[in-house]
Design a binder for these strands. Sequence first.
DNA 1: TCTGAGCCTGACAGCGTTGTCATTATTTGG
DNA 2: CCAAATAATGACAACGCTGTCAGGCTCAGA
Lengths: 338, 338
Amino acid sequence: MKTTITDVAKAAGVSIKTVSRVINNEPSVRQPTREKVMTAVKSLNYQPNLAARNLAGTKSYSIAFIYDNPNAYYVIDMQNGILEACKKQGFELLIHPCRAKSENLIEEITDMIKHSRIAGLVLTPPFSEMPEFVEHILTLDIEVVRIMSGDIAPDDIAPCIMVNDHEAALSITQHLVDLGHKNIAFIAGEAEHMSTVERLRGYKKALKDNDIELDTQLIVNGEYSFESGVQGAKQLMAEKNKPSAIFCCNDEIAAGALFAARLLGINIPEQLSIAGFENSPFSRQTWPRLTTAHQPNPKIAEDAAKLLIAKSRKQQAKSIVTHYTPQLIVRDSTSNVT
Amino acid sequence: MKTTITDVAKAAGVSIKTVSRVINNEPSVRQPTREKVMTAVKSLNYQPNLAARNLAGTKSYSIAFIYDNPNAYYVIDMQNGILEACKKQGFELLIHPCRAKSENLIEEITDMIKHSRIAGLVLTPPFSEMPEFVEHILTLDIEVVRIMSGDIAPDDIAPCIMVNDHEAALSITQHLVDLGHKNIAFIAGEAEHMSTVERLRGYKKALKDNDIELDTQLIVNGEYSFESGVQGAKQLMAEKNKPSAIFCCNDEIAAGALFAARLLGINIPEQLSIAGFENSPFSRQTWPRLTTAHQPNPKIAEDAAKLLIAKSRKQQAKSIVTHYTPQLIVRDSTSNVT
DNA sequence: TCTGAGCCTGACAGCGTTGTCATTATTTGG
DNA sequence: CCAAATAATGACAACGCTGTCAGGCTCAGA
């Protein structure tokens, strides 16, 4: 039933080693031989056995994705993107949900790496933002690619895919300014997340660019949750200097702010503009639909995985840095100041 | 660095075969010997290499999860549950997103199964509801566990985890009846999904139990989407015999209905009660929060994976059927008829 | 035509584990 | 207490592939 390399070798009339060379794109195979083998491979629908490959060779054909993120849409998007790259390169993906704050995180990951030989790790926040963790993983002699917020990479110990939340936040804030808003509030996510830091930085930059004075009363701390949006908006609307617009650190917070506005009898967007960030599915399912910023997560993840695979094959010497900027999407939750 | 069975054998002063026996819980190992080995295993933190196991043995230590479901929360919950079972049993999980309606679905899955030796498949809708697909997979000599809607298993060719949507829908509808509603509408999901069929059946049963005549005008076809909820609710509220309550086939539809109500200036729940189904995260993030039914997806998935693993080890002779019933959660989107 | 350099190809061992079967220890019955 | 039966253990091949290295082939230059 299952086709082995031996079958292909017989069919092509060559040794298994030659088939192996063709499969792995090694040089030193004459063109006619290569073609004979390719034909046999196709006609037998042969695919190399990953277990045997991992066992026999020095190369690995597995990468892993660890996650600790309450946002299921984000995780699925990442996973699908990574899987896409894996499929194309004949790699296998190991999925490993775990707690970033776990006592024995390093031990857990180290064990995983030792037990199933892994070429590398795709790291998303919060893992990508834990330098000591990244460094430790690198000592294990495996590759790492980090997806993180920022416009410049923090170091060059490992490749980075930088998501320019700063610029995207700037666009969103600029959009609000363009609508005539001056009192623009900001509801933050967890302060230790780089995404929060970068989005806040973009917000401040936009204000500064437009000579709008920063009112620190309009910045409220929070976390990436609906509840936090509810609380944040309530608090803001109780200030003497009420905002006419709120930029929420993500869509979930924005949904919470919408909820609070409803509670307080405030019409959106007539009396208050609200913007989110992420373009998650429910940013299209709120009333009104959210103005937000979109980032192509599956694409980013596929890129990251590709990079990781290339690096593990030593096809890529230096640590590369790639950039993505989330794009503004204007919907119905923001409007002109009246 | 990595510990092999040979290291353990040396440490315990036995042959590698004996270590293998202990690891695999085979009989014919004397108790003292077993303990010596166990001690060595622990002190060396040994875990068998999966690639070698899959390659050498006749048993497999991998199961796969294929999905085609727009609901990321559902997929992640399932995945986490399955991974939990895998971790406990030393199995590896292969993740495979694919399109159920793809021309070459069977070919694709067959290839995957042949390519990486797989013990079994966890099937969720829509795959679990495709009998010809399930039968084909079974001919490949691997195990299958299906998670599906209904109160009785459709057949006994493979184990089923039945989710009793019928009874849960009955509870929800009964809840609406108890609040005094008589004109209760139903917005359906895709008609070909068993979940739709079962939920509709529960709805009808509840009406009948309470001697409420079924008004077919109050049942609208739809699909599991926000947009469908918007359209469905608009249509219903345009009828001469307007409903005082709408039971939506899932939370997303309910969110759409909420959206439509907002558009039409209808207050929820004062003028109209709306109930969802699923208890997805955004059922807590709508205004008002949705009354819905909760099912413990991670638990269900873990159960399914456990069953699959047991079956693959022939520890389970007959096809088992397990049952779960989603539980009513009353929130703020339903209230008394006024 | 011969020789050597360089390019191709294949034989063989080994990756870490399990299956088979032979061998050795232990128990049981007479 | 001994033979036979049974239980426990180990030696070795095999799983499907890759790495190493030796050997064969080709072709240019003399």
